Simulated assay, not measured.
Amino acid sequence: MLSVENLKVVYRGVILALDGVSLEVGEGEAVALLGPNGAGKSSLVRAIAGLLPKFEGRVLDGKVRLFGREATHLDPVGISQMGLTAILEGRPLFRYLTPVENLMAAGHRLPPKALKEGMEEVFARFPRLYERRHEQAGYLSGGEQQMLLLGMALLTRPRLLVVDEPSLGLAPKLVGEVMQTLEALRREKGLSLLLVEQNARAALGVVDRVYVLERGRVVFEGSAKEAMEDQDVMEFYLGKEEVGFRQARRYRRRKRWV
């Protein structure tokens, strides 16, 4: 479904954000991309979704292939038409429009009957969103806005869903709800999923495989089980190291990707 090969991305011609990143997402597979702030996760999402030019970035080298076709330099409309939908970080909604109007905008390519049925499905899946369907989207809570974004994504009829930092700023209970929703959508709709997250604990519970990105490079690749069994990954992202200077020094020595 998605193949990224040795991708290098620069901003303004000089700032190297990705330095030879490769990853794959198979049909029906859920893959997590983990990493701290500044690792290059959002740059990879922008490259996949064709949005780099809008951020003064470009692909310097490497390839992006979607559904077996070259897509490295396609624009966002072309990529969307191929079947990829990306939900970017920051919850980009039409904040002065209502949830109903946001959903109508997202599903504008659907026939009227399909759009109506799709919106009914979204509101059935997210009852809280239905209760606030006529309020401005900018006044929804963070969790409700994330639900609206997922509903909008469904109305684009994606084959591959890329979600960037869906748990950002949400309470732990809402994080769990969002992750359960992503897992259910993947199962029920047969979607492939690329989940881009800092919250490793939440992501590892719903994905098959994991990539860890740091300083623009992939520093770990393996199954979710392998990630949970890797002491370096667990210590760095889940904070399971012992307390004290001696242990911190030992961890720095063991951190294989530095």
Rank of each mutant, 00 (worst) to 15 (best):
R133M: 13
L84Q: 03
E117I: 05
D164G: 06
G142N: 12
R128P: 01
L74H: 00
E56C: 09
P158R: 04
L60F: 11
H73I: 00
Y139M: 13
L88Y: 15
V64M: 00
Y96N: 15
L140S: 11
E144I: 08
M119E: 06
Y96K: 15
E144N: 12
G68Q: 07
E135W: 03
L60W: 09
L97P: 03
L66C: 05
A49W: 01
D164A: 05
L60T: 09
L150D: 10
F126K: 06
G107T: 11
A153H: 09
L149I: 12
Y96V: 12
V64D: 03
P99Y: 09
F67Q: 07
G50D: 02
I79L: 05
E165L: 03
F123E: 02
A49R: 01
E70N: 04
A137H: 07
V45A: 15
H134M: 14
R65F: 00
T72G: 00
A137S: 15
A114K: 14
G138N: 12
R132K: 14
R159P: 02
K63H: 10
R95I: 14
T72C: 01
P99M: 12
G107F: 05
V100L: 15
F126S: 10
T72R: 01
P166L: 05
N102Q: 13
P166N: 07
A86L: 03
M119F: 07
G143D: 04
L88M: 14
I79P: 04
V163Q: 01
G107S: 09
I79D: 03
D164C: 04
R58M: 11
L115M: 13
